[in-house]
Amino acid sequence: MKDELRYIGQKVVEKKIELAKKVDFGTDGQLMQKIAVSKFPLTERVEYRAKLIGYFGEALYEDTEIIKERVSDWAAKAAHVAINDHISLSSTLRGIYSYRTVIWDVFTEELEKRKFAPITMLDVSKIIDPLIDIVCSIIGEEFEKHNHNLMKVAYTALEELSVPVVPLTEGLAIVPLVGNIDTHRAKLIMDVTLHEAAKLKLTDIIFDVSGVPIIDTMVANQLFHIVHALRLLGVKVMLTGIRPEIAQTIISLGMDFSGIQTRASMKQALEEIGILKS
């Protein structure tokens, strides 16, 4: 039995380039279009397909664990190529299953020539099918990582838009805050404002908190840290939209906001600065 598997495996390895050229994705028109304009040259693509076919052949007579590692590495790179070529996950997986047809064509041919025992077919299947499953699994994982990273980038960009630093005049910007502020968003507000303050060479920032529905102990404490961090950079901070209950919260915490100017509204602050006329 081992001799039969070795013979078939060696035949697959010998013919891997020839077999790679037979890998056909013709039933998937979208995949064929993407491949046609791929940045991955056809010659290199054929050679890369041949590698996987060669691994399938080697698996019939080499250490399976070593082959699994090689197959996993192959799948990871194949996933990155597909992602860069904007090929969908479903098309990529359908393409992988076409390798099975090529391998079985070789096996069927040799089976007829050499009169192998029918059980040999089952043994080949037990070795190669799990490898194809590994390829599909790794590709799926790589696509999932890619999509997760895209979502993370999009979410980060959306978060940063939730902390708009709007320059008004040289050295002055306003930060209108809207919505709830939790610990994560407070850190984001600090990171963005510190970065923009340095980038825009700001000397004054006006935080308008009239759009923040609840300013509890935690939020007030976070605002205090943000203001303190900006003051360390030499940026003067003014808070506008302070409601009576917010003032009470600040006082109850014993926070020293004496060095921070506060105004009832953004309009009042801008009028005092001279940007708006009353």
Rank of each mutant, 00 (worst) to 15 (best):
E160I: 08
W74H: 05
S278M: 13
T193I: 02
S162W: 02
V209T: 05
K15P: 06
V102I: 13
V71R: 02
S98E: 10
S38F: 11
I132M: 04
E272P: 02
A264Y: 08
N149G: 02
E110I: 11
Q33T: 10
H86F: 11
V23D: 02
V37H: 05
F143Q: 07
K267P: 02
T108Y: 14
A197P: 02
S88L: 11
H80P: 01
I242G: 02
K113G: 03
L5C: 12
E62D: 11
Q261C: 05
F224D: 05
A197G: 05
A186C: 12
E271D: 13
L276I: 10
D73S: 15
R100Y: 09
L188T: 03
V106N: 00
K199H: 12
A79C: 14
V235D: 03
P118D: 06
E44F: 13
V178M: 05
D24E: 12
V212G: 00
L42D: 04
D256Y: 03
V235G: 07
G211T: 05
V124C: 09
L276M: 10
I119M: 13
M266N: 07
E272D: 14
K39S: 15
L52D: 00
S91C: 13
V212D: 00
S258Q: 03
K2S: 06
Q248H: 12
V192P: 03
A79R: 07
D28T: 03
I260S: 01
Y7A: 06
N84H: 08
S72R: 15
T217R: 14
K11L: 09
K22L: 10
L60G: 01
L270C: 06
G9H: 12
R231A: 09
L239S: 01
A264K: 15
R114W: 08
G211H: 04
V102F: 08
D216K: 08
T217W: 15
E109T: 10
D191S: 12
G234I: 01
L42I: 13
K277A: 13
E110H: 04
E110S: 05
F207N: 01
V135R: 00
K68S: 08
D63E: 14
I8T: 06
M121Y: 02
V178C: 04
K113W: 08
E144N: 12
L230Q: 10
G211L: 07
T240H: 15
L233N: 09
D182Y: 01
R6I: 05
V106H: 01
P176C: 13
L42Y: 07
V102R: 06
K152E: 12
S90D: 07
Y7K: 05
A269D: 00
K77S: 13
D85C: 06
W74V: 02
L89Y: 03
A36K: 14
S137W: 07
L93H: 02
H80C: 03
I206V: 11
M32P: 00
E170N: 14
K115I: 08
A117I: 04
V124D: 03
E47S: 07
T92N: 02
L89T: 06
L276R: 13
K267V: 06
T169V: 15
L19P: 00
V235I: 07
